[in-house]
Computed example of a mutant assay.
Amino acid sequence: MPQADAIAADDAVTPRQGEVLDAVLELLVEGRDTLTMTAVARRASCSKETLYKWFGDRDGLLTATVRWQASKVRAGNWDRQHLDADALAESLEAFAANWLTVISSKTSVALNRVAIAHAGSGRSDLGRIVLANGRFAIGERLKPLLEAAREAGLIAFNDAEAAFRTFFGLVGRDVQVRLLLGDGLVLSKAEIVADAERAVAQFLMLYGRRN
């Protein structure tokens, strides 16, 4: 199928396209890891022709689904020209809370389980798709904030990727691994906020500028 009209990484997803991507996630949560365009079209009440027009092919659909899920993780609103310690902490906490909320959701757990299974069996490129459009894309979304904070003299580091990986580890701890392995861990909103604040405090203790 032609892919000329497939959704690009920086294109806005329309409400109707969002409904289709939510349908994909629903199917994954239900354990239907062998996704077909027919199954998605049936669940989303649309034609396969529309799916091919919007997403190009099955991998294009899966890529858009991963981006759709990862887009929920944001670093808050911050202004490079007026970035201070309070604004930095607030933005990092917003990112941490969003990320914990997303990775602990049933949809993310299902998507990651399928991606891991496919990566191990060589059945598809879903593992690569999730890595590129999930973890790596989220890192590129937060690094500008870290670099702006360094320019403002709020934190110090030599390598943005290393700093991000440290932050990522402090936020996630063992939560994602436990969920992927079937642990019944349930994080309340209050617990997520508290964990986000703790992770940011630890990160700033490690990377904060000491006068």
Score class of each variant (00 low, 15 high):
84 D>S: 12
125 D>I: 00
153 G>S: 09
68 W>T: 11
58 R>M: 15
111 L>V: 02
50 T>W: 06
72 K>Q: 13
200 V>K: 10
152 A>W: 11
207 Y>G: 04
104 S>D: 01
37 M>K: 02
99 W>R: 07
114 V>H: 02
209 R>K: 07
147 E>N: 13
37 M>V: 05
165 R>G: 08
211 N>K: 06
78 W>G: 02
34 T>A: 08
47 S>P: 12
5 D>S: 06
176 Q>S: 00
190 A>V: 12
164 F>R: 01
73 V>R: 06
111 L>Q: 05
10 D>M: 04
133 N>K: 12
107 T>W: 05
190 A>Y: 09
112 N>G: 04
99 W>L: 04
182 G>F: 03
19 E>Q: 15
118 H>L: 02
134 G>M: 08
45 S>Y: 09
91 S>G: 08
51 L>E: 04
104 S>C: 05
69 Q>E: 12
60 G>P: 13
89 A>E: 01
185 L>W: 01
105 S>Y: 00
114 V>I: 04
31 G>H: 14
136 F>N: 15
99 W>V: 00
73 V>S: 14
198 R>N: 05
194 A>S: 12
138 I>L: 15
164 F>Q: 05
38 T>F: 08
43 R>C: 06
56 G>M: 06
63 T>S: 14
80 R>E: 15
188 S>K: 03
36 T>A: 04
24 V>S: 06
133 N>Q: 14
67 R>S: 15
120 G>L: 15
16 R>G: 08
39 A>V: 08
52 Y>L: 12
18 G>R: 03
46 C>H: 03
136 F>H: 15
94 A>P: 01
29 V>E: 10
96 A>I: 00
133 N>W: 13
178 R>E: 01
106 K>A: 14
122 G>A: 13
46 C>A: 10
2 P>Y: 04
164 F>S: 03
20 V>G: 08
8 A>F: 10
2 P>W: 02
55 F>H: 08
136 F>T: 15
54 W>H: 11
92 L>I: 02
185 L>Q: 01
91 S>H: 05
76 G>A: 05
47 S>V: 04
95 F>S: 02
49 E>H: 10
161 E>I: 13
55 F>I: 05
90 E>G: 12
46 C>M: 13
70 A>C: 03
178 R>D: 00
52 Y>N: 03
193 V>A: 14
79 D>A: 08
107 T>E: 14
